[in-house]
């Protein structure tokens, strides 16, 4: 099964791809890009490309890949099965971004926000297709953000390719819709088969839709919040929902490089300027350099 | 906290040979600052150890399956008890105008009841001659602080410290040099730098007036 490697270790993320069909190496192809799992507070985000020769686009549409958002999970699985069966002329590739990777990017010192991560992932997948020998002629991309800037960026990156970026592109272009199906199926399977790397016994998987406003998801988060360690790696710690719960129910943790507290320190007492005892000599630099201090008590 | 993380030599933690003589953490008068400072006597108070904490801001411990807010790492290292005894010898010398006295009447401190244990440490009664003049009347010994002998003894301590600094490649120059930077030029710290640094370290263990005398010496 094409996604069996992903199902064995969803937490590991990574790239998964079909073999490049032989016609795609000879004939000009349309390549669609879409994503799944941008909004949920748990699970990976998946970027997918799907491509086929331009003269096979009508056949692709006939597989029923249009309007993927309206499909049930079972229907999506079925249509992914059809795409796999058409593997002699349809190819696909996925990049699975694990939730801890998303959180780390968003929270690291030099912030790498979700939009930048998304654009870079899409760009890398397109490049992967080119490097794998796919004769990409057109690139069609679904976007939630401003389309013009993203389109200009991709055109600059891939001169010589026709690039079209549109909101709701999955409803307009069958190859984007096919990519959407690949991404959604992959994400659904990753969440369903999630391997908790934490040794938590048998954690319940009743996480609802995974969206922050889903009461079932919120309840799951509350049940699975460990006060010192927070959540399992399935959860995106950088999401506002997760951060609020950690603030309210987690143990406070302070880091040396965090911003100073909002309240300024109290001004020193006037009496402190009239000290009776002479100022204490600082410790020898041998001890200062090594952060070694005497103790008055344990 | 109910537990601490501590690195100590085995001698500090040897089991007691007699009941009621376990290792003892106790406060004694710091000879340099005069303030209460934590020390350790091993079983039977044979040896004295100073206790220092490696203490950086924003540190905690995982110890087994617990978390401990207090992120200090304690170090216990052997210490020459004469450094602590010196304070009382100097004080007695000032107060009693240079009278010879028995040690157990000198090394007393109402604020630090463990103070007499300093005299139980191995070989103290023998090595006390490094810092005092001694008289024997009958079977009893009497001691009087000797600055001259003390400075000679401290000079040996400084020289030993200089050797240890060199053999451990401790940078003692006035320049600030991060230990993680490797300097391509061969820069040798001057002997004076070593002596000043060692004097500074020894001064952490003696009263300030004595430190000034030692610097001149």
């Amino acid at each position: 099964m094409a996604l069996s490697a992903l199902q064995r270790d969803p937490a590991g993320g990574g790239r998964f791809a079909s073999a490049v069909p032989e016609p795609c190496r000879r004939l000009p192809c349309a390549l669609g890009v879409d994503e799944a799992g941008r909004g949920p507070v748990l699970g990976p985000m998946v970027y997918a490309i799907c491509y086929c020769p331009v003269d096979k686009l009508e056949q692709l549409e006939a597989l029923g890949v249009a309007d993927s958002k309206t499909l049930s999970e079972a229907e999506r699985e079925r249509r992914f099965g059809l795409l796999e069966a058409a593997g002699d002329w349809v190819g696909w590739a996925l990049q699975v971004l694990p939730p801890d990777h998303i959180s780390a990017c968003m929270q690291q010192r030099a912030k790498y926000n979700l939009n930048e991560l998304s654009h870079d992932t899409a760009t890398e997948l397109i490049q992967f297709a080119l490097d794998s020998g796919v004769q990409v002629a057109q690139v069609l991309v679904d976007t939630v953000g401003p389309a013009e800037k993203y389109e200009a960026k991709l055109r600059q990156r891939f001169p010589g390719l026709g690039v079209t970026v549109r909101p709701k592109a999955d409803a307009l272009f069958p190859v984007v819709s096919a990519a959407s199906i690949c991404a959604k199926v992959a994400r659904d399977r990753a969440v369903l088969h999630w391997n908790f790397v934490e040794d938590l016994g048998d954690p319940d998987r009743d996480y609802g839709s995974g969206y922050p406003n889903d009461p079932k998801t919120k309840e799951w988060l509350r049940r699975n919040l460990e006060p010192v360690f927070g959540f399992p790696r399935l959860v995106r710690f950088s999401w506002g929902t997760a951060q609020a719960l950690l603030r309210d129910r987690g143990v406070p943790v302070r880091w040396a490089d965090e911003d100073p507290p909002e309240d300024p320190p109290a001004p020193p007492s006037v009496l402190s300027y009239f000290a009776r005892s002479p100022p204490r000599r600082p410790p020898h630099r041998f001890f200062q350099e090594r952060s070694l201090r005497p103790l008055a008590e344990l | 906290p109910a537990q601490w993380v501590l690195i100590a030599p085995e001698a500090a933690l040897d089991p007691p040979k007699k009941p009621d003589s376990e290792p003892l953490f106790t406060k004694l008068r710091n000879p340099s600052t005069g303030e209460a400072t934590l020390y350790l006597f091993n079983s039977g108070a044979q040896q004295l150890f100073e206790v220092k904490a490696f203490h950086e801001e924003c540190r905690s411990w995982f110890i087994g399956q617990t978390v401990q807010q207090d992120g200090r790492l304690l170090f216990v290292t052997p210490m020459d008890p004469l450094f602590l005894i010196l304070y009382y010898l100097i004080k007695a010398d000032k107060e009693q105008q240079g009278k010879f006295q028995p040690l157990d009447q000198v090394v007393l401190d109402s604020e630090y009841p463990s103070c007499p244990l300093l005299l139980k440490c191995a070989d103290v009664k023998q090595y006390i001659q490094h810092v005092t003049e001694e008289k024997e009347i009958g079977s009893q010994k009497f001691h009087k602080y000797s600055q001259e002998k003390t400075l000679k003894w401290l000079k040996k301590k400084v020289n030993q410290t200089v050797k240890a600094l060199k053999s451990n490649n401790i940078s003692v120059g006035e320049r600030v040099l991060a230990s993680t930077l490797i300097n391509s030029k061969q820069i040798t710290d001057a002997q004076e730098d070593y002596v000043r640094y060692a004097h500074g370290l020894i001064s952490e263990y003696i009263p300030e007036d004595l430190s000034k005398e030692l610097l001149k010496y």
Binding site: E198, V251, R254, W255 | C58, F62, Q69
Partner: peptide
């Protein structure tokens, strides 16, 4: 030894979340 201050003393499922490595 942690590079942060966890403001709590008590049990923590360390083995569940961390793997010790030399």
């Amino acid at each position: 030894l942690l590079p942060c201050c966890v403001q709590h003393d008590g049990p923590a499922p360390v083995a569940a979340f961390l793997r010790a490595r030399p």
